[in-house]
Amino acid sequence: MAEEVLIEKWPGTVSSVTIGALKNEGGSRSAIIKVGGQKTLPFLFKEGQIPNKPVVAFEIWDISPDDWHPELIKEYGTSLKDPVVWAEKCVNDHKAELLCIKLQGAHPDFGNKTAKEEAGLISQLLKKVSVPLIIYGCGDNEKDNEILPACSEAAKGEKCLIGDAVQENYKTLTAAVLADGHNIIAESPIDINIAKQLNILISDMGLSLERIVINPTIGALGYGLEYAYSIMERARLAALSGDKTLACPFICFIGQEAWRAKETKVEESQQGIIWEQVTAIALLEAGADILVMRHPKAIEKINSHIQELFGS
């Protein structure tokens, strides 16, 4: 007897977030990225619409990431010394569709760059590359509150994705994003209750839930991957069941977590690339919409994996 496939009908939809604005939309991007909008769990094409593919963003820094693995440093070479050259390399050599510029150099312990310097860098990046941009702070709340509003203003109208807003520090960034027409990343520490609460707090300031991307924070393979997976799955199930406060796309910082694993530290080894891929593949299945990754080889594999899953 033929087995009957059970088809679930979900009442909810994940909100659709657009990153980047074209020239006729008040920006200067050559293409835009849309994420979210799905009406079912990942890759269950028979159950509901999945209008947008997950997308990989190349992670670049404003300073040379000297503590990165030699495998990564070898791959990018001298371009690491200049974020604009690095960005161009990602776009021209590796066909990056989306860039995530991490402003690590603004951190008081890593160079303490000023808001003016960082805003200048963002303006330059926007001039030199035409893909949409994710602008990511240094993680020091006080410093991020100085640099991110300045960067937001420098990128006004470009519909960037800017983060992170956290429960203890979301007001300054939300106000800036609201004023300059961007989207925001809301970060919660692998905690679905805080993710929901933060989304409510941000939307209470007038930024609609449709402009929020959730950074659920993740662990790499062997470092809490399953925990992150289950939180993302639970949030997505709630979203599809109709909870709008959790119906936002996810951004996952795959590269940052994967390359921290001790298994990647082996010299002269491709293990880090594999670690980054495996972590990405698992979290794609959990519902990741934007994957921020580092190694071009890992990214290439993941992009073709996504194409394959979408049957194209």
């Binding site: 209750n193 639970r234 909870d243 959790l246």
Partner: peptide, 15 residues
Amino acid sequence: KQIYCDSYLEAFKKK
């Protein structure tokens, strides 16, 4: 049936 957050009563209004 709903996921907890501190503002869960308010979350209901955003449904």
